[in-house]
């Protein structure tokens, strides 16, 4: 590492755009440190939770680490989970997008942290893989500018993929990076990025399917709102984790059930069984259902009927359902719930 080398911090999600941006910086002779922020709301984490349980030979990878390895760029994971929920998700100054996604505040928060690292460790500027016009909330011109200013990175935030259609930054003005070698990509299309990936020899990158974060997802947002409404803002990390899997039904103000949708979700729920009630069938293949809170006898019976509804015994007149609660175990013979309307009313 020579002293006069320009050093930049890149926000790296592991997606194609941030990987291309890092690759481009490297090609221009910049020493790059990738920062990957772990918010606790990452969709890939869910794949890992589930893929983990029953398929050891094909685990899901962390795309940011993988991108770092591909480029031989060091990637540091910055754990922001503790502050992210209370400071960003619950109180976004700039509001939410389609779900509970506070994208503008989220970018500001991450970039503020990047700025702290820049100052602590003597980096020269920060770059991201953002593309002008690609996302409706945070990647339009006015919010992009506001994000830069609020993060305290005015002039020091380079978006190399769209740089040529944005005002010149300090790294360009000072000749640290050659503006003519940057790009002017605009919009949601992926064509130019794929062409660049090909040119850079990047063949193994994640497809931009479904997004990387749970918060814009309306179904997830509903479950999160429900949890916050009933448990308050000091939510347990395990409860947050459980939002990522299963069908959720609210039986009462303090009672919720989570029904596994398939074997890997059941395996996953199994890990959270301690300290929670649970319901399952021995006589038929069935989901594992977890019960949160202190159910009444009627709640327990209803949880058994729901579980029976999703079991292979759903068409039987009655089925025996096992339950475990507060250190006790028992069995109830119940009619599987037959009316989906009843479920829809309590589905979170």
């Amino acid at each position: 590492m020579t002293d006069d080398k320009i050093r930049a911090l890149g926000l790296m999600s592991g997606g194609l755009d941030s990987t291309l941006a890092a690759n481009l910086m490297q090609n221009l002779g910049i020493e790059v440190l990738g920062l990957h922020f772990s918010t606790g709301f990452c969709v890939a984490d869910r794949h890992r939770l589930l893929g983990n349980s029953n398929n050891r030979d094909k685990p899901y990878r962390n795309d940011a680490l993988h991108a770092g390895a591909q480029l031989e760029v060091p990637v540091e994971i910055i754990d922001i989970k503790d502050r992210y929920l209370p400071e960003v998700v619950l109180h976004p100054k700039h509001g939410y997008g389609s779900g509970m996604n506070p994208c503008i505040d989220c970018r500001i928060f991450m970039l503020q942290r990047a700025k702290e690292i820049l100052q602590e460790r003597g980096y020269d500027f920060v770059f991201t893989g953002e593309v002008l016009g690609q996302r409706p909330m945070s990647q339009r011109r006015p919010p992009m500018q506001a994000i830069e200013i609020e993060a305290g990175l005015e002039g020091l935030l380079l978006r190399p993929l769209s740089a040529q259609v944005l005002p010149a930054t300090i790294p360009e003005e000072r000749g640290w990076v050659d503006r003519s070698k940057l790009f002017g990509i605009v919009g949601r299309g992926r064509h130019k990025q794929m062409q660049l990936a090909d040119e850079f020899g990047l063949t193994d990158y994640p497809q931009p399917a479904g997004g990387c974060c749970f918060l814009p997802d309306e179904n997830y947002a509903r479950k999160l709102r429900d949890l916050l409404t009933h448990n308050g803002p000091d939510v347990d990390p395990d409860d947050m984790m459980l939002l990522k899997v299963g069908r959720h039904f609210r039986l009462g103000d303090e009672v919720k059930v989570i029904v596994g949708r398939h074997e890997s979700e059941n395996d996953f729920l199994e890990r959270f069984r301690d300290g929670r009630g649970s319901v399952w069938l021995d006589a038929f293949s069935s989901p594992l259902t977890l019960i949160e809170g202190s159910p009444s006898a009627a709640d327990l019976e209803f949880a058994c009927r729901i579980t029976a509804r999703y079991s292979a015994g759903r068409t039987e007149a009655e089925v025996p359902v096992r339950w475990r609660l507060d250190g006790q175990e028992g069995q109830l013979v119940v009619r599987p719930l037959s009316e989906d309307r009843q479920l829809d009313e309590i589905r979170i």
């Binding site: 990738g34 890992r48 893929g51 983990n52 398929n55 050891r56 685990p59 899901y60 990878r61 962390n62 680490l65 993988h66 770092g68 390895a69 480029l71 031989e72 760029v73 060091p74 990637v75």
Partner: peptide, 18 residues
Amino acid sequence: ADDAGIEIDLPAWCISTR
């Protein structure tokens, strides 16, 4: 660890961080 994904993440982390 019991997260099987470390089998690909740790090698990747090692390559990236040397």
